[in-house]
Structures are given as C-alpha cells and as structure tokens.
C-alpha cells in the first residue's frame, strides 16, 4: 500500500516535471488544443442557438380552420374530437366567435382604427379551430381529415394552410434539418482534426525522448510506469486548455454585449447564445474538461505505444 502510494506520487510529480521541462512543446500542444476546444464550444453554442430559433419559428406554425356562422357548438365539438384523435396532433384549440374576437382585440390592441371599425359592426370573425401539429413533415394526415366532405361543409373558407404557407413550412423544416446535421458534422470534423494535430504534437514531444523511453524499458520499468507521467502531462494540457477555451468564449460574449452592444450577428441571436452559455456554464465547462482530458490522455497513450513495444529497438 505504502509502496503503491510512493509510486503514484512519483508518477504525478514526474508528470509535472515533464510539463515544466517541455514548456515549449507544452505551449504548442496547448495552443492547438485551446483552438479546437474553443471551436467545438462555439459550434455547440451556435448549434443550440439555431435550433432554438428554428423551434421558435416552427412552434408558431399551426393550422387554422374557420367555421361557418351557422355551425352549432355540438357540431364543432365533434369536429374537434375527430381532429384530436389524429396521432400527429399536438394540441387543438377551439375558439368560438366571441373568443376569436377577444383574441383579435388583444392582438391589435394598439390599432385604434381597426378596433373602432370592428366595434361598429357585428362580430365579423368566424369561430376557429387551431391545430398544432407534432411533426411539420406529416401534415397531410391532418389536411385529408379536414377536407373530408363531412367536415368540409362546416367550413367557411378554405383552411389557412395552403399554397405559399405550406411551402414556407417545408422550407423551414428543411433548413432545420440541414442546420442541425451541418452543426454535428462541423463539430465532428473539428474534433477529428484537432485530435490529429494534438496527437502529432505530442508524438513529436515523445519522439524527442524515445531514447529515454527505451532506456527505462531496458531497466525494467513497466509500461504503465513509463507512460503514466506522459499521460499526466497531456492531461494537464487538456485541463488548462479546457479552462482557457471557456474563458475565451466568455470574453467573446462580454465584448459582444458590452462594447458592440449587439444582440444578433447575422442570423445568430447572440443574446440567446449568451443566455444558453450562462445557463449551461458548469455543464459546458465539465464537457470541455472531459473532452480535453480524453483527447490529451488518448493522444499520449497512442503516441507512446510504438516506443514501448517489446521489439528490437532499431537504432
């Protein structure tokens, strides 16, 4: 037990000594790691922001069915019940004529002229059924039910979801899918590239010390004992890089919001990004730390591998 602790202490201490002695390589390896982790974090936040924006837009999309004035509330209720049975329906709201008017008034509260015009006449608004679909890609089911002759005859106007509007919805869902997929692919590619670069840097560091590794090997040091300090060293890179990447993103938001006073950048809603970052601060930091440690440890394990093989050392 004591012997094991002695060994553990030595490994940790040697890891730190390596880290200090190889300051320049440490800087190089960490620079790549910081850039990568920052890019990954950034793409993650951008992706979250975009999907939030898309969600906001799509959640506003619903289908409105307008009923003729003569339709009784019993007829309307059975229509609503039929719609509710559809699997792709998230929510159905029925607004009778007076409710529809109330909604209209609140929506146009600042438009005095319009309100005055409405008050003069009878309530011109039809009773309305608002349908919120679950999946925008599967609206045909709803459409075909609503256009059955049995229900069609209750309706005053054609349903409001046709032609142009449907095209818009399709475009938005399409864009969402592409954005999300692109985000995932981008993060994946960056992670891969950075692992390769970091791996290369560490491999270089270890190449410089291959004789040392071979000597340790010949003196009877176990694989773990030789490798562990290198792993400790690269884990230190990973931890520092993760912290720095989070600080960089933090600094970016501070400059964006305070000095530029920007709330959005192109399509990107910066204020939401910032909110997302702040709300998930600890989780994101933890994720960055995990990534940094994994990338660091994996690259040093792989990079030491070839010098620790029991093979005739070629000189």
């Amino acid at each position: 037990m004591g012997r094991r602790r002695t060994t553990f202490g030595r490994i940790i201490r040697t890891g730190f000594v390596y880290f200090i002695r190889n300051a320049w390589l440490a800087v190089a390896a960490m620079a790549t790691m910081i850039i990568t982790l920052t890019i990954i974090l950034f793409s993650l936040i951008v992706n979250a922001t975009f999907s939030n924006q898309v969600e906001q837009i799509t959640s506003k999309i619903d289908i409105s069915v307008y009923l003729k004035d003569g339709v009784t509330s019993a007829q309307a209720k059975s229509f609503v019940a039929a719609i509710e049975k559809l699997p792709n329906v998230e929510d159905v709201t029925y607004l009778d004529k007076s409710a529809a008017l109330r909604v209209f008034i609140t929506q146009n509260a600042n438009n005095d002229k319009l309100l005055a015009a409405i008050n003069e006449t009878d309530n011109p608004l039809p009773a309305t059924i608002k349908i919120k679909p679950r999946d925008l890609n599967k609206m045909n089911e709803i459409r075909s039910l609503v256009t059955k002759p049995q229900w069609q005859k209750l309706q005053s106007d054609p349903i409001s979801d046709s032609g142009e509007r449907r095209a818009t919805i399709d475009k938005i869902t399409h864009a969402t899918n592409i954005l999300q997929r692109a985000g995932i692919i981008a993060v994946g590619i960056f992670a891969l590239i950075s692992v390769l670069i970091i791996f290369n840097t560490i491999q270089m560091a270890i190449f410089n010390r291959r004789d040392e590794l071979q000597i340790m090997r010949l003196l009877g040091a176990s694989t773990g004992y030789i490798r562990a300090p290198f792993v400790v060293e690269t884990i230190i890179y990973g931890v520092l890089s993760a912290i720095i990447s989070v600080l960089i993103i933090n600094a970016l938001f501070i400059t964006a919001s305070s000095s530029l006073q920007a709330t959005s950048f192109g399509l990107l809603d910066i204020s939401y990004s910032q909110l997302y970052f702040q709300e998930h601060y600890w989780r994101l930091l933890l994720m960055q730390l995990t990534l940094g440690i994994l990338i660091g440890a994996a690259s040093s394990v792989i990079a030491t591998q070839r010098y620790l093989k029991f093979k005739t050392p070629k000189k």
Binding site: G2, R3, T6, T7, E212, M216, L219, G220
Partner: peptide, 26 residues
C-alpha cells in the same frame, strides 16, 4: 550497457535512483 544508456535529463543521483524507483523503493 556498452553505451551506458544513462537518462540524459536526470542527474547522476537520479539516474542511479531510477533503478530503485521503478521497483517502488521508498
């Protein structure tokens, strides 16, 4: 070893100590 194989980054003391370190001597 015919070519000594000393660890270049360690002092004389540390080189000799290394042989003991790897077997876990206090």
């Amino acid at each position: 070893f015919q070519d000594f194989k000393l660890l270049p980054n360690r002092t004389v003391f540390e080189n000799v100590a290394f042989a003991l370190e790897i077997v876990g001597v206090s």
